[in-house]
Design a binder for these strands. Structure first.
Lengths: 192, 192
DNA sequence: ACTCTTGGCTAAAGCCCTTAGCCTCATGGC
DNA sequence: GCCATGAGGCTAAGGGCTTTAGCCAAGAGT
């Protein structure tokens, strides 16, 4: 890699590669430096420290999720939107299980934008249920909790039994949708 | 601490103390040794290595959760049991937020027993919905995903907005219960 | 052509885990 | 009562990681 070819962005690229094969523990500055063909201290010219690199990686992952989920939800509404959102989210996690384990949830500036974007997407998906303001926020939190919980458990191999996970997730999607209907503003349906 | 006062159990106790104040990153063999008044290598007489200590801690936390959840569910059934289960689970996580972050989900022998116990408890709680075999397993997975997702996000401070978290969790409980009814065997109610 | 910033380097300190090998006490059999 | 034995401590040491300090070269701009 020629001089000056290194940037925070390319460093995050390399970091994601290491995480994909080797899990979260494989993300070390030494390893990233090795992959970049550079001595470890050189990385400090581009990144403050390991914690910041983790935050940057986290932000990148969240951004990718937001992209894919946003694309999936585009043009749908109501139940269909919820299904698309949940399906796309899980699809990302299945494609990159290790990445999901490095996500940091504590509010950091780096990920704020991606988080806000996801919030917007989810809000749009739930609009058809006619919830307003805080009702929508509570509903989005529940949606997020369900998706996140399933994703974490699946990514970390927490489901031991042989039962088909797709069926379980289908059920979860149905449960969420049923729950949204049950708590939606009266007189609204999932598909207006 | 007198000679021979150290055992895997007391080491896990000390480890939990460190985690409670200081987060998951505070769990190091050096720190545990310091808390035990012992040189770090001495710990290896009781514990194979850091990975095993983590597994032991994880098993202990899971066992405590199983105890508290089991106690809460005792004597209830149907919707009430589900509500009690979810409430007790979250209560534990709120009491010890840092502990929840050290949980390992990959199947390890240490935690298998506690996991099986929790599965039994959940199965009993869902019995009133009249699901059998794999239907029950899928339902339990959804319940677990919802609880776990909310717990993780709350413990890690993932919910940024000021809206009341108790309300959100109430909604989640209602959503789960609604979903269980929607997917329950026909002709059954939450409270038989 | 000269300068100055940028981005690399080596050296080194400090923390952590882990292994190896020793020593000391308490216990149990004789 | 005595000694062997093993459990449970210890120090020493190695290797990996992060991070700081300080140096040096390459290249862009004037």
């Amino acid at each position: 890699m020629g001089r000056g070819a290194l940037s925070p962005d390319t460093i995050v690229d390399l970091a994601l590669g290491l995480i994909d094969e080797g899990g979260p523990a494989a993300l070390t500055l030494s390893a990233v430096a090795g992959a970049a063909g550079v001595a470890p201290p050189s990385l400090y010219k581009h990144v403050r420290n390991l914690a910041e690199l983790r935050a940057l990686v986290s932000a990148r992952v969240l951004t990718e999720i937001a992209e894919q989920v946003g694309e999936a939800v585009l043009g749908r509404s109501g139940d269909e939107a919820v299904r698309a959102l949940m399906t796309a989210w899980r699809a990302y996690v299945r494609r990159h299980p290790n990445r999901y384990a490095v996500l940091i949830h504590a509010p950091e500036p780096q990920s704020a934008e991606a988080g806000a974007r996801l919030l917007t997407i989810a809000s749009a998906a739930l609009r058809a249920y006619g919830m307003k303001d805080s009702a929508a926020i509570h509903a989005i939190r529940c949606l997020r909790a369900a998706v996140h919980g399933f994703a974490v458990l699946e990514a970390e191999g927490g489901f031991g039994l042989p039962e088909d996970l797709n069926e379980s997730y289908d059920l979860l999607i149905h449960m969420v949708i049923a729950g949204l209907h049950a708590s939606a503003a009266p007189g609204t349906k999932g598909l207006p």
